[in-house]
Design a protein around this nucleic acid. Structure first.
Lengths: 72, 72
DNA sequence: TAAAATAATGCACTATAATGCACTTTTCAG
DNA sequence: CTGAAAAGTGCATTATAGTGCATTATTTTA
């Protein structure tokens, strides 16, 4: 999952849950500025920050083996 | 996936591939000190750092919706 | 389309991740 | 055991993430 996809996923999930950036910031304990930077594609969040955000959105970070075969 | 699980996954994958921390550090472009800190459970890596590491190990970071039901 | 709500951005400061180096500890083959 | 390789840690420095505040731009809605 590319960085931009991660962002997109988070953003879409937030919107699907009808939460504003401000709301998510408060719920997750992440600074609003930080969240904005993240969602606007700037910045390079720490795992902790990403975790706080995903957590509130009911999501979790995982690692999976990349699919090397061209099964598309 | 908890933080410790992420670490465990990375570490096991690295060992499965028979790469040393030093080797992985070089291949990924992440400082050895950083990698050591990460694997020893200290530190809070940036997404960029985690990405570089997972990438070399043939893994990718992803976000998935948490399973809320108690299906254990 | 004006007002209100939401999102983006510049500035400045603090906290901490990333890093190298030297040294200690642990692991493991012989 | 013993020595060498691999892993972990303390210290110091640099780079940058996290943050708040004020301001501007966008989007939404009445």
């Amino acid at each position: 999952m590319h960085f931009s996809e991660l962002i997109k996923t988070i953003k879409e999930r937030r919107e699907a849950l009808q939460v504003t950036q401000e709301g998510l910031a408060e719920l997750s304990g992440v600074g609003l500025r930080t969240l904005k930077q993240f969602e606007s594609g700037k910045g390079n969040p720490t795992l902790s920050t990403l975790h706080k955000i995903s957590d509130v959105l009911g999501m979790e970070i995982c690692l999976k083996i990349k699919n090397v075969t061209h099964t598309k």
